[in-house]
Design a protein around this nucleic acid. Structure first.
Lengths: 185, 185
DNA sequence: CAAATTTGGTCGTTATCTTGCACGTATATA
DNA sequence: TATATACGTGCAAGATAACGACCAAATTTG
């Protein structure tokens, strides 16, 4: 969120430096004040889209080149530190490991189903696809009135723009990883 | 510029309607106030990038899907109505027909060189490519200390991240169209 | 070395984005 | 008919983006 500002700022500054442009010259080219450019570069200000448009146009850049994150960083997500979303009286627990991001266009969850749990999921918008990787237990998924049995280490892929049901009919717990991809054409 | 705002607004409204979401619900999902959403949809406000980020994330959209222009419109550009950029004492005239746009990543000019005109062009940034389509007369272009003679109806393509010279050594006027493409990886 | 220019930044003011609240309309409900 | 619910928009207040003028350090120039 906040890092988003800093990212754009770093991108602009990097490109400006590569081209040996001063803030003054850049201001002249883009029509955005020097002060604003400086603040944006330092992440002190979140530009409006019209300002960003001026910068992109003046510098002859695409939006993606300004927005793209420079992330050579390593991130480790500890499941214990993630607050699960509880449903079905605690029998169905969703751990958001990787939140959605307009760049990557997907999100990743770890999901746990207690024995006997049946969870009815709302259909997503059109173009959404789910990838379910079962780690422990046997998961049953109902899509299009068809029951699919997914064994451990197996993966189920389906278009999730329709109602679907997750079910644990076994005796032991079911743990799986779910990747949800949003196409938005 | 201003149409840019309206474009984003229309995109958001269209997607929101497709999903049968109210402004209230959308506000709840995205964390952006209902009032703001309404104003953005109506093009009354240019959101900051953080606000746009919230909208894109909440609605699970990419930036491009929000930014992309819906343009089934036909546009006709009359050269007579375009103000040329005059250089070399009026011997070198540049008519910007299609201005740069962060989406398309290129711009189009019509260029006229009077007989005897020699124009020295500044090198562009790396990754820039020029496409020169000669319509009338014979154009000479110097790149990398090499002289290229471009006859009418012929096209010259070269990487323009180095100094280059346009020259009209003939007796009659030279008219050509130039497409400049900016890669910005 | 001193003057001049360039560079990036701060300060105060203005414009505008952003919000919560309230209002009007429309549709459904009792 | 009256009540309730949902929907989008107008209004005033607060926050903040955007600008122009001014300042200090670094670099260039004479």
């Amino acid at each position: 969120m906040e890092e988003f500002q800093t990212n754009i700022g770093e991108n602009i500054k990097r490109i400006r430096k590569e081209r040996n442009l001063s803030l003054d010259k850049t201001s002249e080219i883009t029509g955005v004040s020097k002060t604003m450019l400086g603040q944006i570069e330092r992440g002190k200000s979140a530009p409006t889209i019209t300002t960003l448009w001026k910068i992109a146009s003046g510098l002859r850049l695409s939006f993606s080149s300004l927005i793209s994150q420079y992330k050579p960083n390593v991130t480790i997500v500890k499941k214990k530190e993630v607050n699960p979303i509880i449903e079905n009286n605690g029998q169905y627990r969703v751990y958001p490991l990787v939140p959605y991001n307009p760049e990557q266009q997907f999100e990743i969850f770890s999901v746990t189903l207690e024995p006997g749990c049946e969870h009815i999921a709302e259909p997503h918008t059109t173009g959404v696809e789910e990838f379910i990787l079962v780690n422990e237990g046997t998961l049953e998924v109902v899509v299009n009135e068809q029951v699919y049995v997914v064994e451990p280490e197996d993966t189920l892929i389906f278009k999730a723009d329709r109602p679907h049901i997750y079910r644990n009919n076994g005796d032991c717990i079911v743990k799986c990883s779910i990747v949800i991809h949003y196409s938005s054409q």
